[in-house]
Design a protein around this nucleic acid. Structure first.
Lengths: 376, 376
DNA sequence: GGTGTTCGTGTAACCGTTTACACGCTCGAA
DNA sequence: TTCGAGCGTGTAAACGGTTACACGAACACC
């Protein structure tokens, strides 16, 4: 492969001049530039980006560390990151399948010298000291952090508000005994949603009961399995808030098997608004979560940190959730509720002052954006 | 940030020794190694991967160039790549949204010096000479290439066989007038599927009719819009093969609006087996496509090329498709067909000899694998 | 006591760029 | 004519590592 030296030799100039031509420096004569370009074409020269970033200490790349890539949530997050990164002409270096913070740090280590900044989703409630290793080294933004995380940027989703809103919706429909299928213990998203559920009940004067909080693990299977337990509760609840859509789907198919009519005999709601929530029969009432926006916003809040020589103040952004009311809750004809009002919770990050969080996009992206070559 | 020199100074050794310790060279005394490690920890030293790859000309990274990231097809491809790459301890540098080959080459250029090899999906029937620029420079494997592509590795999906099998299935159910909604003109996947459709008809003694080939563009909307045209055909077809699932979904909802019973009055089939095909009502009969396997296999066939000093022979792998028979074709209770037998077509790549293509995974991954934190 | 090995280590060249600095030339003003 | 400014260019020192080679010490062998 040709290097800058080969080009310089062929063009009869010094390597400095070649470099200047490729960096659009104004201080090059037209004649030299022409000769350099001709030589470069002739030799099929492509500058070595790796070498370049060694001297400039700018890589124009950002790292993305995710616990997993499965399912459309992560795929939308990446798409959001990719889109925003592309606008900034940044490459993205992806690494996933991090079971714990240790693996996360190992992956971040391997990116040293290859990235200007990092977007990460911490898989567990990991040790702060390990996280600090990363924070010290890169400009970083954490997505959906488990804990408060002062001293670094965060972007997260309004789990608490979304859960609270959908449960309040059920209350508004007249339900007085509402169960939930909760996510895995220790999972922060699951716990925030659970809190939202409980507070919505309390606000309606209904006391949360442990018996009504069935244990799931975010899988479809666990939703399916909770059905039997649900149907044996005395008195039987008339509505269920599943902490994510996959569990709601499992529950729906179990209810169908059991011959229970949804929504008449049992109202079901989920969380996430995955793409096929709308295609279910009955269509699933759920909380729309803007995964694309999460990735996009993470990138946008990272970029100024990457460029700044001096660290700026941290931002903590919370993306609002939106109710997507469909037929599984028995209120299909009700108008869709607007964006859910943000509440402050001491354990959740506070939105940055003076900068309104992103408006959530429509809960029906499928019908609005052409899906392009998605099916190829 | 501490460099190797800082560590050397603090440990009282030369930089060569530090380097040896970090590369597990055996020729280092226990005492020196201990001092170096202590110094490294003390200074919080992380080796600069970028600088390292400049001297070694190995980056342990591979580039991934995709036309898009939308939808689960691409997300599964990336997941497959990521998974295989992780096993090989390779990082992945992703770039997407390439509308044409020119943009593809630009993106590849920007990766020069950062990757050891490249996995690419060519967005158009792009100029061979531009593609050649890439092939000359990197070990590369193309996914789902539009044309035959000698001289480089390819992995693709059995579009022709899949389409042919699903149409033959319809023929087997007794349909004698089968329409199709084709994908965009010029799209190679669409055209291979169209050929499969036509050949299946011919093989059954039915002549393909242009009137029966409705024009879609792989979007749900286009499937919806084709419904009117379909219902006005004289005589009306009794079955439709939509060239992807999104169009089949659009058609299904239009048929429901029109009060046409599926599958009794109209059998509908799709292609791709997107995750919610099974959740539709009626559940969609379709062709399962192994996007995860496509990415995984692409990575596996690239790796030896990246490591080899001498170029090995090219491989051309075709992943089999599988029929996923559900109720939308009126044969819900029939046992699922097995993998579709591969046919050779002169315009499709030939599977590598002696190396069986991957077995397709079950068409029901959702029910088999826990979806983990997909809903978070 | 010479000689050859082995081992641990250091020196310095190199990977492919960028860029501070210096240099020589031209040209206009004093 | 002299001087300074401006311009185009080249030289050389980085950037942060790896590694070929050399070297000195310790040791075994004859």
């Amino acid at each position: 492969m040709a290097t800058i030296r080969d080009v310089a030799r062929l063009a009869g100039v010094s390597i400095a001049t070649v470099s200047r031509v490729f960096n659009n420096s104004p201080r090059v004569s037209e004649e030299s530039a022409r000769r350099v370009r001709a030589a470069a074409t002739r030799l099929d020269y492509w500058p070595n980006t790796g070498a370049r970033s060694l001297t400039t200490s700018r890589t124009h790349a950002l790292g993305v560390l995710l616990p997993d890539l499965f399912g459309e949530f992560f795929s939308e997050v990446i798409r959001g990151i990719d889109h925003a990164a592309r606008e900034e002409k940044l490459q993205i270096l992806v690494s996933s399948s991090h079971a714990d913070t240790g693996e996360l740090v190992t992956a971040a280590r391997a990116m040293r010298g290859r990235i200007d900044g990092l977007i990460a989703m911490v898989p567990d409630n990991g040790a702060g000291s390990e996280i600090q290793q990363i924070v010290r080294r890169f400009p970083v933004v954490f997505m959906n952090p488990r804990t408060k995380m002062n001293g670094c940027n965060t972007v997260s989703i309004a789990n608490y508000d979304g859960a609270r809103a959908v449960v309040e919706h059920l209350v508004g429909l007249g339900h007085t005994r509402i169960a939930t299928i909760r996510g895995p213990k220790g999972n922060a998203d699951a716990e925030q949603r659970l809190r939202g559920y409980r507070d919505a009940l309390r606000a309606a004067g209904q006391m949360p009961e442990p018996k009504l909080e069935l244990q799931g693990d975010f899988t479809e299977r666990s939703g399916f399995q909770c059905c039997a337990e649900l149907l044996h509760l005395e008195p039987r609840p008339s509505a269920v808030f599943a902490a994510n859509d996959y569990m709601a789907i499992g529950l729906l198919s179990a209810l169908r098997d059991a011959g229970i009519d949804v929504p008449k005999a049992m109202a079901v709601t989920g969380f996430d608004d995955i793409a096929f929530a709308r295609y279910l029969d009955p269509a699933l009432t759920t909380v729309h979560v803007d995964a694309y926006g999460l990735g996009e916003q993470a990138t946008r809040s990272l970029v100024p940190f990457m460029r700044a020589s001096r660290p700026s103040r941290c931002t903590h952004i919370v993306l609002p959730a939106t109710l997507a009311v469909r037929s599984s809750c028995g209120a299909a004809d009700a108008p869709q509720a607007g964006p859910i009002r943000r509440r402050r919770r001491e354990t959740e990050p506070v939105p940055v002052k003076g900068k309104a969080p992103l408006r959530v996009r429509s809960p029906s992206p499928t019908m609005r954006r052409p899906r392009g070559k998605a099916g190829v």
